[in-house]
């Protein structure tokens, strides 16, 4: 154990200078009559975690670099092959979307249901944006988003089957998919969507799925709704 004669404290660390005042330390005497004998044993070392933190950050930097490199190549190819049509802007949005999503998925600690719900929601917005940017043909609302909603149903079913003990914890995700289906139907009824098949299919599939969980879920389902909606 060392001693700082300026601060008048003993220093447990194996170091040359005092962490408090930066004065060079002296060797503490072996026996200090004013202190209990076990005073030098009262603490344990700490791990050096700086390398671990650095490694995680480095991986994120590598990922960002690769995505930027990919986008730069896309811009170059776009410029030399199709100079009048800037499709690389779309790829840029997709690259940004992928990066932000990966950062969120890796770093954020919310459950899968919330992450998947957000993924579905933002993907819908992304599809709408791409549709709008490429001439507003309406394919996003007519086909892509209904397809995504049905994919959402499959995902919820998959999660519930995989995690049977707490299947009810995906109820909110199912409700979100149901809300999206109903919005799609409303868009059809207000003539924003022209194809009747997909909205009706979405409402029927999701509604049927929800009905099944309510009927067979019994108390677990009502318990989940009570918890989720408690005021």
């Amino acid at each position: 154990m060392n001693r700082c004669t300026h601060c008048n404290v003993l220093i447990f660390d194996e170091r040359q200078v005092c962490p408090l005042c930066h004065k060079v330390l002296d060797q503490a005497p072996d026996h200090m009559p004013d202190l209990p004998e076990d005073f030098a044993l009262l603490t344990a070392p700490y791990p050096d975690v700086r390398d671990i933190k650095m490694r995680i950050r480095r991986w994120m930097h590598v990922l960002l670099f690769l995505l930027i490199l990919g986008q730069a190549i896309a811009v170059a190819v776009d410029y030399f092959t199709t100079p009048g049509y800037w499709w690389s802007i779309i790829s840029g949005i997709v690259v940004l979307y992928i990066y932000l999503f990966l950062v969120y998925w890796i770093r954020h600690d919310s459950g899968y249901a919330l992450k998947v719900g957000l993924l579905l929601g933002f993907t819908m917005l992304l599809l709408l944006g791409i549709d709008h940017f490429t001439g507003a043909h309406g394919w996003a609302l007519e086909y892509a988003i209904p397809g995504l909603i049905l994919f959402g149903d499959v995902l919820v079913f998959f999660f519930m089957a995989l995690n049977r003990q707490t299947w009810y914890s995906y109820t909110m995700l199912l409700l979100f998919v149901m809300v999206c289906s109903v919005v799609l139907l409303i868009l059809y009824l207000t003539h924003q969507v022209h194809n009747v098949v997909m909205p009706v299919l979405c409402v029927c599939v999701t509604g049927g799925f929800l009905l099944l969980t309510v009927i067979f879920g019994d108390r677990q389902m009502t318990g989940e709704l009570k918890r989720r909606f408690h005021v």
């Binding site: 008048n8 404290v9 660390d13 408090l20 005073f39 030098a40």
Partner: peptide
């Protein structure tokens, strides 16, 4: 932190200090 310990040791309190190495 240094002033905190210096003040107490100045009042006759013994102190031993440990850091996490950062």
């Amino acid at each position: 932190q240094g002033r905190f310990f210096q003040t107490l040791t100045g009042l006759g309190v013994h102190a031993a200090v440990h850091t996490n190495g950062v």
